[in-house]
Each structure stands twice: as structure tokens, then as C-alpha cells.
Nucleic acid binder design. Structure first.
Lengths: 260, 260
DNA sequence: CAGTGGTCTAGACCACCAA
DNA sequence: TGGTGGTCTAGACCACTGG
């Protein structure tokens, strides 16, 4: 009993109905931010369904991004659903000369406590998808700076910068854990490179197992995969930054000037 | 038997291991594009797990976006995983004067057959989240143009344009199903509006039930929610376009000029 | 028709959390 | 300790696809 087609001839499965119910309650404030959702056992009772069905419903609710589930505790409505703002002018030179790296510049606007952890700085073979962007042969050795960004202590983004050897070797600070005031872009400029533009290419997809691990996500949770190329006025790409962000933590905005 | 901690003391669940296995095989070409994945029954046999476990693994594989599952048929590796390119210069005026709306301009680059279906053109109350962007009071009546974009016949994106009454009333073609050559932006320009910039704000999240329906997605599949404001040289926002895209169908690129 | 994925059940055992 | 979510099983019935 309880099959979708029997409970009223509907084509919509029970788990979808339960998920929609919960999402609506979050939407209209019946379940306010910070509130604990009904436990799965309770949902089983109130909807008269089995555990598997409730779990599938909850998986869908989680995918919506407005809920956070903690093992042994329960699921609670997130306080500020979309949080960090990544915007076009985060790369302003004026920020760097004031000593703010891009992520600090935007953290200032959003009121959360930011953090960075440098995971590794090493020479390694360039990944196949990055090689053409840097205009180097596949397998060429480059400098890779891998770091983890935190927001209020929780990981929200990983980023890996790839820099050609000849550029990196000329700037010793790039091999240091802390590249100094203004971040690595300030170091590039200090070494005479002048930026013309940044090109960001992004797509969204479910998190892979590896990303799930590093960012502390539930499997299948959406992530944004963004690759940024830093182009100098000489037309050279001197850095490619590959970042993966927990999708629910970011809102991105871009300003596109109208052109002919 | 078969629990995660018993099969070798690993903390990684079986479904994750199976999903990773399949994703790796897709990645390295063991399962080439167009190929049918092993059926769920076969996976149960080869990995010696139950149906539920295999289904959870497949759900994770699907979330990766490289696989398409058809009921009664099986799961197959998508041909061209990321397909449509949405780029910064899709709004070039030169495209419009040549009679190409933005979506046609980019479709030309990607080799697929594009399509649009106008779902509705009507006057309605502005949504609460759109009102502040248009600088109108909540509940104000605006013109809403809702359309569905197709790629090779399958829906990939819904878009709803909101236009203030005073702007819309002056341009009769905006109420027509087909706004004419160059799209609605060409009509705005024809009526004397000059665009200064477009501001795009986007986030990624799992699809809601309603989106699942319209776009023909699996529940929980990632979507990109993008809101574009069209700003004129007079500083007025004359259109807000709210779009939801199937995430696996789009790669977005933005060019950000370096500024001080 | 046989084979495929989709929904659902009932029950087991585990890992985490808080009192 | 009792309640919570997380993983897994074994089996049922359904709906869709294709020959």
C-alpha cells in the first residue's frame, strides 16, 4: 500500500510530495532559519511511509541547499542561505595596493570570518586541461599553489593556482606559504606584469567523492567549478586558477559592459 | 555482511566506491560517449550488493552530469558532456543588427539545433525578488515574457523577462509572441533605449520539483539560476530576466577587464 | 515478451550526539 | 542511554523500452 498510483492515482511519488511539503514550509517561514526539521522517524509516522522514502525526500530537500543535516543531531534550516558574494570588481588593483587579496576584499562585505589554509606549494606536471590555457605542452612542470578557503571555520572553496616555471622562478615569494600583502596578484604586478583581463569559465555539477571529502559536503551536493585565466597586457596567461566552490555558499555576479 | 567497515575497515561506503569506479571508467574512456553503462542488475551481481546500494551509486553518477538515464533503456554516457557556451559577448549589438538574438548567436558556435517556445506573454504582478531590481514597488504589474529554450529538441533552459509597464506599453512588439528580428533587445534599442551594461547574478542549486518537471530533469540534478539586469545609459533597469538552466548543458564564460 | 529503471516496504546494524 | 541520521539487505510491484 502507499504506492504513488494507489494513493489517489497521482503520478507524483510520495518522496517528492514530502520534499515539496518541507520546502514549502521553509519557504513560507513555518520552518524558520535555525529551526530543526522533523526527524526522519517522525516523518515516517506523520506521512505513514518507510524509512527509505523519507530518506529520499530528505536527499531532495538537501539538494535545495537551504537545509543542513548533521549526523546524530538532525536537519536544520540554514540561517543565511546564500552567503558569500563573488563579484566582478574583486580584482581591483586598488584592493591589492591596500593589501587586500581578492577573497578578503569580498569577505569584508559579508560579515563572516574568512580564513585560508595553504595546502601545498609545489612543482608538478600541469594538468591536461590547464596546459592549453597556459600555452604550455602537456606534462610541463609548473608551480602549483593549492589552498582551502574557510568561512566561519568551515571549508567553502578549494583553489589551485598554476603558474609557468619561468614566471614563478622570477618571483621567489610565490613559493612561500604566505605570498605577502595583496596576495599573489600583487606580486605579479610588483614583478612588472600588468593585467589586461581575467577570463572566468564556470560550470555547475554534483560534487565528486574527492570534493565531498575536502569540502565536507554531502555526496551529490552541487558545486561550482570555476577556472580563471589571468591575462597580461602582453597577451600572456601567467596564471590559471582552478577552483571548486560549495554552490550553496556563493552568489556570483558579473557586470558585462554593452559593446557593439 | 558487506557493511562498509567490514569489507576492509574502510570508512568509504560501497555506493561511493561503485560510483567512483564508474566515473573513473567514463573519465579514462573505458566507457566511451554513447556507451551503455552496465545495468543495475548487472552491477548488483558484479559488486555483490543489493538494489538500493546500486541505485544510490547511480544517483551519484548522474549527479556528476556525464551520464543520462532513460527509464526502460539504461544509462548512457553523454556524447558532449558540457555543451552550450554562454559567453560575455553574446549581447553584442552587432549580433542584434544582424538579426540574431543572443541565444541564436551562441547556438551558431556549438553546432546543435536550437529552439525557443514562448510559454506566455502576460501582464502580472512582479515577483518580490525582482521588484527591487526593477525599482518598482512590490506587487506592481509588469509585462512578463516566459519562454523555454530547447537544444536538439530537449528543454535546457527557461527564461522569464520582466519589463516595467511604461517601457513595455511604448513597444507593442514586446507583447507579440515573436518580437521580431534581433529579439527584444533590438526592440528596446529601436525605441531609443541605449544599453550601458548587463549585470548577471547567478547561483547553483538542486532543481526544485517544478523545475524538474519543465526541464525534464531528474530530481536533485543541479541547475544554474541566473538573473540578468539590463541597464541603460540613463541608469535605468528596463528588463530583468530570470533564467533557470540545466547545469550540465552549459558552460559560462565571463571576461573581466582589469581595473584600478 | 524479457529486461530495464523507479518507487516502496520492513527490518537490520552502525556511527554520531547529547543529556 | 535514547534519539538521530547513514548504510545495507531482500523482496515486492510498477512503468517504460525494445524486439
Amino acid at each position: 500500500m502507499g504506492r504513488a498510483h494507489e494513493t489517489g492515482g497521482r503520478a507524483v511519488p510520495q518522496y517528492a510530495r514530502i520534499a515539496a511539503d518541507l520546502l514549502r514550509q521553509i519557504e513560507d517561514g513555518t520552518l524558520p532559519p535555525g529551526e530543526l526539521l522533523p526527524s526522519e522517524a517522525e516523518l515516517m509516522r506523520t506521512y505513514n511511509v518507510s524509512a527509505g522514502t523519507v530518506r529520499k525526500a530528505m536527499a531532495e530537500v538537501r539538494a535545495g541547499g537551504r537545509v543542513e543535516t548533521r549526523h546524530g543531531k538532525g536537519s536544520l534550516v540554514k540561517k543565511r542561505p546564500p552567503v558569500r558574494q563573488r563579484s566582478s570588481d574583486r580584482f581591483r588593483r586598488s584592493h591589492r595596493t591596500k593589501g587586500q587579496a581578492a577573497y578578503l576584499a569580498e569577505a569584508a562585505q559579508s560579515g563572516a570570518v574568512p580564513g585560508v589554509r595553504v595546502l601545498s606549494v609545489e612543482h608538478r606536471a600541469v594538468p591536461d586541461d590547464v596546459a592549453p590555457l597556459l600555452r604550455v605542452a602537456p606534462g610541463t612542470e609548473v608551480l602549483a599553489r593549492r589552498r582551502l578557503y574557510l568561512r566561519d571555520g568551515v571549508p567553502v572553496e578549494t583553489a589551485t593556482s598554476f603558474i609557468p616555471r619561468d614566471v614563478a622562478d622570477a618571483i621567489p615569494q610565490l613559493r612561500a606559504e604566505n605570498p605577502g600583502s595583496g596576495g599573489i596578484y600583487a606580486r605579479f604586478e610588483g614583478a612588472g606584469h600588468e593585467f589586461a583581463e581575467f577570463v572566468e569559465t564556470l560550470q555547475a555539477r554534483g560534487a565528486t567523492a574527492a570534493e565531498t571529502e575536502v569540502l565536507g559536503l554531502t555526496p551529490g551536493t552541487p558545486v561550482i567549478h570555476l577556472v580563471r585565466e589571468a591575462v597580461t597586457t602582453l597577451g600572456r596567461v601567467i596564471e590559471v586558477c582552478d577552483t571548486v566552490m560549495a554552490a550553496d555558499q556563493f552568489v556570483l555576479t558579473y557586470r558585462i559592459p554593452a559593446v557593439d
